[in-house]
């Protein structure tokens, strides 16, 4: 527990099982403040379940999850955890289809969350500038008043990343951000994420190896619910067990 204060996320011995199948098996993971971490692993390795545990969607059967060294995430629900400052981007882009791009960002904007507050709320000048900034960052300024359902797949991914930024979280969990993107979009996204990592902790789950290489960060390999290897992409890809788990079966 001595390294608790220095980790923004601390997972220790997490086990989750569904009907006897162990989706996570004694998984431990530490993320330091400001760190960007890539998580890779074959299908069914437990990547999404791990994110579910961190964001409160799934409760662990055993083990501990701490945020910022002191907050027990296993006791909180999704909304609490999001309000603490853990943002999540889903594998499948989920934006609010029937609202405009700007409204999507406004909903995500940090600040008011209570029922009465939002009822009485009206946009301040600062909120408006912040939204303009975000639109710049995700390059959707020209689509500001478009309904989100008219965006392309890549644009939706970016809008979702923009929404994450609007939340201004301490930790971002990003699930397969470049799935279904064109090559140029992929490069753009890698750039965007590196920019974000400058002042946030980021966990990226990704299949795309060249994208992970582009990110150039510490890599954790998951297999069958636990950590198989950790280190630079080059060192883990030389690891016998990693090769076996990817190719052996």
């Amino acid at each position: 527990m001595s390294d608790l204060p220095s980790s923004v996320l601390y997972l220790d011995g997490i086990t989750v099982s569904f009907d006897g199948f162990k989706a996570l098996n004694n998984l431990s993971l530490y993320i330091e403040p400001g760190e960007m971490r890539a998580i890779i692993g074959p299908n069914g390795a437990g990547k999404t379940t791990m994110m579910d545990v961190i964001t409160g969607k799934t409760k662990p059967d055993s083990g501990e999850v701490f945020f910022d060294g002191a907050v027990d995430l296993a006791k909180l629900d999704e909304a609490d955890i999001a309000q603490l400052g853990i943002g999540r981007k889903f594998q499948k882009p989920t934006v609010f289809e029937n609202q405009t791009v700007a409204d999507n960002l406004q909903l995500a904007l940090s600040g008011v969350r209570g029922v009465l507050e939002t009822f009485l709320w009206s946009a301040s000048a600062r909120d408006k500038t912040r939204i303009d900034e975000l639109l710049e960052i995700i390059r959707l300024t020209h689509l500001r008043d478009r309904m989100a359902n008219s965006l392309s797949h890549g644009q939706k991914q970016w809008l979702e990343i923009g929404m994450l930024l609007a939340q201004n979280p301490k930790v971002l969990l990003v699930d397969e951000p470049v799935a279904g993107m064109t090559d140029s979009e992929t490069v753009e996204t890698a750039r965007l994420l590196r920019e974000i990592a400058e002042n946030h902790s980021v966990i990226v789950v990704e299949h795309d190896m060249s994208f992970v290489r582009d990110l150039d960060v510490k890599v954790t390999v998951l297999a069958e619910g636990s950590v198989l290897a950790e280190g630079s992409l080059d060192s883990v890809s030389a690891d016998e067990r990693v090769i076996e788990s990817y190719l052996g079966r």
Binding site: E78, A82, R88, F96, Q99, L107, R113, V115
Partner: peptide, 19 residues
């Protein structure tokens, strides 16, 4: 807006921190 967000993507709304 939050209500409409809940209507269209409930769990996403939750992950934005809305109860």
């Amino acid at each position: 807006m939050v209500l409409a967000a809940i209507r269209d993507a409930e769990s996403r709304t939750r992950f934005l921190g809305y109860r």
